Amino acid sequence: MNEKEKNELYKEFGIDDAAGVFENLQEKESLGQEILERIQATKEIREGQDRILKLRRKKTMLTIAAAVGFVLISTGLLFLQPFGGDSYITVTVAKGETRKLVLPDGSTVWLNSASTFKYPKKFGEKRRVYLLEGEGFFDIVHDDKVPFVVEAAGIKTNVLGTSFVVKSYQALSTMSVAVVSGKVAVSDDHQQTSVLEQNEEAIYNKDHRKPTVVKVKATERKAWNDGNVILNAAYFEDLVLAVENAYQVKIKYDQQKFKNCQNSIRFNTKQSLKEVLDLIKEIQGITYQIKEEKEVLITGSGCN
Rank of each mutant, 00 (worst) to 15 (best):
A153V: 04
S173V: 12
Q198Y: 04
D188A: 02
G227R: 06
Q191W: 05
I35Y: 11
E44C: 02
E275M: 05
N268S: 14
Y247H: 06
G32Q: 13
R127I: 04
A185T: 09
N228K: 14
K281Q: 14
N245M: 01
G32M: 13
A178G: 08
M1Q: 09
G84T: 06
M1N: 07
F148Y: 01
V276C: 05
P120K: 04
L77K: 07
D226M: 12
F236Y: 09
L25E: 10
D144K: 14
Q262A: 10
L9I: 13
Q191Y: 11
L277H: 06
V150R: 01
K217P: 00
F83W: 11
G85H: 04
F164Y: 14
F13Y: 14
E29T: 15
I15D: 04
D139T: 12
I64C: 03
V195R: 00
L231Q: 09
L241S: 02
E5C: 08
Y119P: 06
F79P: 01
V229D: 04
V93S: 00
Y119T: 07
P82S: 02
R128V: 15
I45F: 08
G84L: 10
E151V: 09
V216C: 02
A18N: 08
L9N: 08
V184Y: 08
I265V: 15
V180K: 08
Q40H: 13
R46H: 11
E151R: 08
L103C: 06
K281F: 03
V249R: 05
A65E: 08
L55M: 10
T219N: 14
P211E: 00
A171N: 11
V214M: 01
V177T: 15
S30A: 15
V149N: 05
R57E: 10
F83T: 11
E197D: 09
R56D: 09
K145G: 04
V141N: 02
K11T: 11
N158G: 02
L36E: 14
D86P: 01
Q40K: 13
A153N: 14
E97T: 07
S173L: 09
L80S: 10
N245H: 10
A223V: 09
L78V: 14
T287C: 03
Q271R: 10
D189C: 06
E23H: 10
Q40E: 15
K294T: 02
K58Q: 12
A202C: 03
M61V: 15
I89T: 15
H208K: 08
D238Y: 07
